[in-house]
Design a protein around this nucleic acid. Sequence first.
DNA 1: TCAAATGGCGCC
DNA 2: AAAGGGCGCCATTTGA
Length: 580
Amino acid sequence: MIAAGSTVGAPGKNGAVLAALTTDRPGWSVQLLADDGTAIGEQERVDAERIAALETEHHPRWIWNDTLTTYPALLAAGVRLDRCHDIVMTERILLAREGRFGEPAAAAAVEARRLGHPVPEDLAEDLPSAVPVLFDTHTHTPDPGVDLPALVNAYLDQLSRVATAAAGRPGEDIAVDPGALRLLIAADSACALVAAEMGRFGMPWQPDVHDRILTEKLGARPAPGERPPKMAVLAAQINDAFGFPVNPDSAVDLRGAFRRAGFELETTRSWVIKEVDHPAVPAVLAYKELSRLHSANGWNWLTEWVRDGRFRADYVPAGVVTGRWATKGGGALQIPKVVRSAVVAEPGFCLVVADAAQLEPRVLVAVSGDEKLAALAGDDDLYVGLAEIGFSGDRSKAKLAMLGAMYGQTSGEAGRLVATLRASFPAAMACVETAARRGEQGRLVTTVLGRTSNPPSAAWTEIVDTGAGPEASAAVERRGRQVARDRGRFTRNFIIQGSAADWAAVWLSTLRQSLRQVPGAELVFFQHDELMVHCPAEQGEQVARMVTEAADTARRLVFPHGRARTPVRPLVVKCYADAK
DNA sequence: TCAAATGGCGCC
DNA sequence: AAAGGGCGCCATTTGA
């Protein structure tokens, strides 16, 4: 379990609690340290076996520059480690709070340069998009320009900055408890371990089942560059219905075809086309659906991403500004429901699939401290209670209002419903609306654990300032107001989505710790507010309980003062498609 | 001709 | 039903 407010665990036998590690060729270099950073013994060139022995003997927190470029090679060598401190990930969190967003986050590398070591440009310019993600687990890439003293300096430097960073900066209102920030750092580091482990183990995936789904929907697998049979039939029907050739893959062509047929469409999105009264419409909609399946999760995806019965994704923990995970390639966070029956536990194993029910509205309850809303939070279905209070029992309206409030909807029915919500729950609404106003002013917002929004770009400031200027034309003024409002919607949602991501990160990393007691159990999937464990069938119920307990721990740690609940719903199944 | 932008849609 | 937040990915289109 992650201890809030502490950065290190119990001392090991020899007093060592930390182990700085760099990747060298061949092998690794390690320095054991006490919790104040004092070296214990000598720097050591080590192999995987020695690292495993150090883990057993000292159970240290491993300090390294970047989990995603360090840990996969260790996993490939058969070493699993329990705890780490990820310098790069921590640096991004701290820099954002210090108003130094966008500065190089490779702290150890920066420190190494200060000490006079050469730092290659690619590492020095370590912006989030430039972080090398080496998921080839057999790649063993040395840390260029990073040595053990630099790593230790970077670690101590980061520790010393936590309290100030937690306090934030004058005028920004982003202060959080230092313990919260430490929890965030620990959770993010642990999530990086999860991401590497999950990427290596992979999600059980049966290619024959997937192929059956594709063949059923699309017809036999076509030659490369050809349309699958059922798409070809639909394309022909579309041509017939219009009376002239149309390429349904081309939005330009499709829009032109509808124009010739007398329909002026803003876009060719499916919900727009659905409203058009023309004989081609059903075939167009069917074609779009099949086309999406074929191009995003068709046979090409299957051959590229599924090997040896596993889908191995490249996860990027906290890769999104809000702290949500991202992926590189494979689209692991957009697996369509229609192919989920291909995810099947191995013989003798089961899948424990769990999602957090109505997480975002519950997070709003917690971060806003709205007492009236909190009174509803005990219900299993938050929207039912909400409906009774403000929406004459209409659950769908209550849900729409809540989503509209969190996403910043102002127009249409949802906009009106948000107004109703505001009347009943002023504190909750004030919370999101304050966040929106800060965004409109170009200011920052923070999640509950202290992840801070990125500042607006210079271009944004320019547009907003010009729009507010005395000589602005009506159009320029309108444009300025619009980008300001867009920014407000972003910051409004940031505090909710990001705080939900905080909770989920603690949930995931807490569960990872519990699962060490269950031989054969592996986290195999994580998607924002949902996770999946692959474990021996007889341990399914035990793992399900752990999932629930981890959620409870996460609630206590992340929302210590809140009355919000964060219930999760673990299901023990054979197949992902059965988890509904 | 090639890289970047756009449109569209899957997930939460 | 529509369209507010966050993404990644594909095919097509655009523009240097």
